[in-house]
Design a protein around this nucleic acid. Structure first.
Lengths: 202, 202
DNA sequence: CATTATAGTGAACGAACGGTCACATGTCAA
DNA sequence: TTGACATGTGACCGTTCGTTCACTATAATG
């Protein structure tokens, strides 16, 4: 059968670490989460630390594959309102996808203890979103949909509030609906401030 | 002499918890930080958990006293540029004050494990700053310094990016200077977008 | 069929943990 | 001087931690 026990251990570890942290989780719990006893875990990993490091490798790779590659760039909206739609779609995915939620949570918890977690946290919470939207905004400026200006600055001003609300959902999931409404309201406010409609030139 | 050992224990606990988390810190380290052995700590606290709960009480009280009371409201700027100055002053304090930094870090780490930490985290990272600046912005609108609009929305759009950069400093202190420059640049961008200069009416 | 590799187990290990307690100090009021 | 109280200590406790290992069951390979 070989049902990829190694992968299931990493899954369980991510889930537990994201709730109770690395130090707050023990090997017995991880094993129990897949119906094993702790010694079985050591068939697949040499130590608890190796689980953590492998998990980090996986998270880094996952981020690169999901947000880093060029073919995953979001489509450039056709209208200022399209930016809001795009944002809502992306926010919805990033809040619903349990794996991404858990990655954000574990990076939040462990960022002060582990250097690699620190770097990935900065990319997740700050630079990654900014870079991505900077390119989108630049394209929108070229299309005459957004007022001309520093696309990086605009992207930062746009993504930081959205990111803050996404992190609120991580912390207090029962406020998800409220947060989504706030994201939409903020996005509309943003497009009303910076958005332009095409002049219709052919 | 009675040199407030209880208070010093709380100080040491805050420092250690903010770096390694509650579970990652043990009583021996806390005791050693003030030159004691662990059993001495139990003269002042019944358990590790009581240290944690007392610390949380203190953090909640500290926040209320520091940011909650009306007499600590920041002065309303006289010009749009004054908003940037005010922001830089507040950011500088909040990044330099080690106690506040540690409180933010420990709330970041423990927000998923402790309900009270969760609530205080939301206030620290989201609602507190927004509420405070909403009042400032409302006053600035009344004075004709800021374009009319929803002060809450504007405050959220303003404080969320600043907060994101402050949290970057918590995570990567060597990027503090860069972050401060970004805060200033963002604040200037913001006042250029929404700021107005008085018409000079008497 | 015998063999070899793989995955899982229960018992046991030393170390570290949070916590207790009898005891040694020092301080200060009666 | 005495007694009471607060503070600090070292030895010790039971538990839990991460980790090891001899052993079993299973499945694939020659």
């Amino acid at each position: 059968m070989a049902k990829d026990t190694k992968g299931r251990i990493l899954e369980a570890a991510l889930e537990l670490f994201s709730e109770k942290g690395y130090e707050g989780t023990n090997i017995r719990e991880i094993a129990a989460a897949l119906g094993l006893v702790k010694s079985s875990v050591y068939r697949h990993f040499e130590s608890k630390e190796e689980i953590w490091n492998t998990l980090l490798d996986e998270m880094i790779a996952y981020y690169g594959q999901r947000f880093g590659s060029a073919d995953h760039l979001p489509p450039v909206p056709d209208t200022p309102e399209g930016l809001t739609e795009l944002t809502m779609r992306m926010a919805d995915i990033t809040i619903r996808d349990e794996k991404i939620v858990r990655i954000r949570k574990v990076l939040t918890i462990e960022q002060f203890r582990d250097g690699r977690a620190r770097e990935l946290a900065t990319r997740h919470f700050l630079t990654g979103l900014t870079d991505m939207f900077a390119r989108t905004f630049e394209a929108m400026m070229d299309k005459g949909l957004l007022v001309r200006g520093d696309p990086e600055m605009l992207a930062f001003a746009y993504t930081a509030p959205v990111s803050a609300l996404i992190r609120l959902c991580d912390r207090e999931p029962d406020k998800t609906q409220w947060a989504m409404e706030r994201i939409e309201a903020f996005s509309r406010h943003f497009t009303e401030t910076y958005g332009m409609h095409e002049t219709g030139r052919v």
